[in-house]
Design a protein around this nucleic acid. Structure first.
Length: 276
DNA sequence: AGGCGATCCTGAGGGC
DNA sequence: TGCCCTCAGGATCGCC
């Protein structure tokens, strides 16, 4: 389940290969994977030269020198991989989009079995700026002090703190895995109403988030099932998960059995002793 | 208006 | 072995 660390690692693995590349041809096998009121060839960046790969939260934006932007959402099972036709790294199924680059054998593929992800075409950088205004500051690229004050500004809400962490309009990039991992490290119960947190707890949460996201990016993200980077390689941060997916196992800190339940509509795991 | 449940989709995994 | 049911979840929509 790609969240911020997976998308950031993906961005880093694709950037050196894609910067300056000319998009020679593109094929969209499933039209409904693409959103945006732009003709397909134009949307798929055909004829453009890639100028940058940017990220905000879980969204990746491929920008061309002519201004066009194609946003990529991985959703739950999305993959964006540069692959040699003679050495495929991914299954041939569910490849909804393909790009060919001038002078290159490798092709870029967007693969997404569950289709919670997709592509969004935008006319220019201004449209991207407007789009990204709708979501909060990036949870990783933003200084912890600002993350802390951004979160604390939500301190009036009755919603559980986990729902606030998952709300992309507040902070961009956190999903189920990194919400549970940072709440555990901060010692905060996921079902606590946001308005019950103290300033100290907001600070602890901001610094736990920073540490978890930085470690996960450094590990190449978490690969539970589908996630692969731009070269088709898995991440390894799943080995460092302390609570996510470990319901009924002993707490790695105190040994008490980890509890599992639904918070904010998501499966959530926490330690009833270490998290208050 | 904020919070929450339903919805989309496919494949894995468990039970029988 | 094979079938069927449940579950996983990001973002969006509609309801209360």
């Amino acid at each position: 389940m790609p969240e911020l660390p997976e998308v950031e690692h993906l961005r880093r693995t694709l950037e050196p290969a894609l910067l300056g590349a000319m998009v020679e041809r593109a094929e969209l096998r499933r039209r409904d994977v693409l959103r945006g009121a732009v003709a397909v060839g134009e949307a798929m960046l055909v004829g453009g030269r890639i100028a940058s790969l940017d990220r905000r939260g879980k969204e990746l934006a491929i920008r061309c020198e002519d201004g066009r932007v194609l946003c990529v959402h991985l959703g739950m099972s999305g993959q964006l991989v540069l692959e040699s036709p003679v050495a495929p790294t991914l299954p041939a199924t569910h490849r909804h989009a393909e790009w060919g680059l001038r002078g290159r054998d490798e092709r870029l593929f967007f693969r997404d079995p569950r289709r919670f992800g997709g592509l969004v075409a935008l006319r220019d950088g201004e449209a991207l700026r407007t789009r990204w205004l709708g979501r909060g500051p990036d949870a990783f690229a933003t200084r912890p002090a600002v993350v802390s004050s951004t979160l604390a500004a939500q301190g009036g809400r009755r919603a559980p703190i986990k729902a606030v962490l998952l709300d992309q309009r507040v902070l961009a990039g956190i999903g189920n895995i990194y919400a549970d991992e940072s709440l555990f490290r901060a010692g905060v119960r996921p079902d606590r109403p946001a308005r019950s947190l103290s300033l100290e707890e907001w600070k602890a949460l901001a610094s736990a988030l920073r540490r978890v996201l930085a470690d996960a990016v450094a590990s190449g993200g978490s690969s539970l099932r589908d996630y692969r980077d731009g070269s088709g390689r898995s991440g390894s941060y799943q080995r460092l998960h302390l609570v996510y997916g470990r319901g009924e196992e002993p707490c790695p800190r105190c040994g008490r059995t980890l509890r599992s339940g639904r918070v904010a509509g998501r499966t959530t795991t926490w330690c009833p002793r270490c998290q208050r």
